[in-house]
Design a protein around this nucleic acid. Structure first.
Lengths: 215, 215
DNA sequence: AAGATCATCTTGACGGCGTTTAGATAGGGT
DNA sequence: ACCCTATCTAAACGCCGTCAAGATGATCTT
């Protein structure tokens, strides 16, 4: 059963089964959705027995973590690309936000897994953490560049959190039929996203205006 | 097995099993979390056979829908109460938003089920739809009252959507450990929520300021 | 080259799940 | 008293995640 396996087709027993399993999981996720993503289905898709994955992952959750990790990497790249695309500093945040939501819309099953894993661990994964070169820092520094140096570090931090929450909320809710009229009125998905993101400011801005005006 | 069942303990075969099942589901949800919420466990908790629920619900999803419905009712009440509590018009939205997120934090398993059901049906449930007396209208009209009549209907609609997305995003993400430093710096969960909600305005407001300043 | 070693994979099993079918049971209508 | 229908139970099906035991084959030692 082992013919000519020097370094390509199957370097070891099976080959790089770990990677094969993660790829199989992503394939199932894209083709059949999250509800079809069972460990047994992944093993089937990879052509191994149901118990084989346990030699590479502690349990199903660890396999999903690996899938989610690839997803966060891809999302980070999409956001970085959006930053590079931004025409000027004032468009930075909108560009990144739209890229975030579009990624979630284009890979809904993957995005679901990404967030379910994060929620279970109560934290964003490695690539998104608050350290050099992370997407979190990308957002924060883009934001700081936009608002200027007169804003305090604490305000920048809170605004970064707020922007991330808003993007996630919009990513999860933008599929609701309730928003179809608004989308139609604006003439497209991306126009709708831009409008909603830009209207995120109206509520507190108006409140502050009233407060400032009063006291 | 049927002793003295006139109209109270068990009016029919079992009694009002439908309600009993929904109650059992909520009990399991609060005590053991969403992962323990199997149809069989619900039947067990209600003291009936695993097949009994199928005479009251088409499948597990329909039972979850019923549970979710109660959840949305409770959330709507919490939001209405928050509106009544608001000191003045400018505090309306913040008060409602904080109430929304606090509800999600206090009933995390229930909130998860509520949203999973909504996502499956791609829409918010009855009580939240865009019609008289719904929570959606509550938010929109509160918002209109706050910003004044000079804002167009379309802008109010988009801002309502944006506020709802932001609240949902914050509700789902506020448990992340990444935000612990910010919470500590602000001295409490609710203060953190208020700050994040109020900072939702910084990003687009700053962008618009730059755009207005340039063009 | 031969044997030991160890990671890798398969087989088979366990209990739990959602769901269906067939049969028991008990209220209500005639 | 009778049937009828709604309600519930018993038993089974296939799927799931997981584990223990054994087979397989690559690598290492000598």
């Amino acid at each position: 059963m082992r013919e000519a396996a020097t370094a390509e087709s199957r370097p070891y027993h099976h080959g790089d089964l770990r990677r094969a399993l993660v790829d199989a999981a992503r394939r199932i996720l894209e083709n059949e959705g999250p509800s079809a993503l069972s460990l047994r289905a992944v093993a089937r898709e990879a052509g191994v027995s149901p118990a084989a994955p346990y030699h590479h992952f502690k349990d199903k959750g660890e396999l999903l973590d690996a899938v989610a990790h690839l997803g966060w990497d891809a999302l980070g790249e999409a956001m970085t690309a959006a930053k590079a695309r931004a025409a000027d500093v004032s468009a930075l945040m909108t560009e990144i936000g739209v890229a975030y939501v579009l990624f979630a819309q284009q890979h809904p099953a993957l995005y679901r897994v990404m967030y379910d894993c994060s929620r279970d661990q109560e934290s964003l994964p490695e690539g998104m953490e608050d350290k050099e070169d992370s997407a979190y820092c990308l957002v924060r520094e883009s934001f700081r560049k936009m608002v200027g140096p007169e804003i305090s570090d604490e305000d920048v931090e809170l605004a970064t959190i707020a922007a991330w929450c808003a993007a996630h909320g919009l990513a999860e809710m933008s599929g609701f039929r309730q928003f179809d009229p608004a989308k139609a009125a604006l003439g497209g998905e991306e126009a709708f996203l831009r409008s909603v993101l830009s209207h995120l400011g109206m509520f507190p801005a108006a409140a502050r205006a009233k407060i400032d005006g009063q006291g």
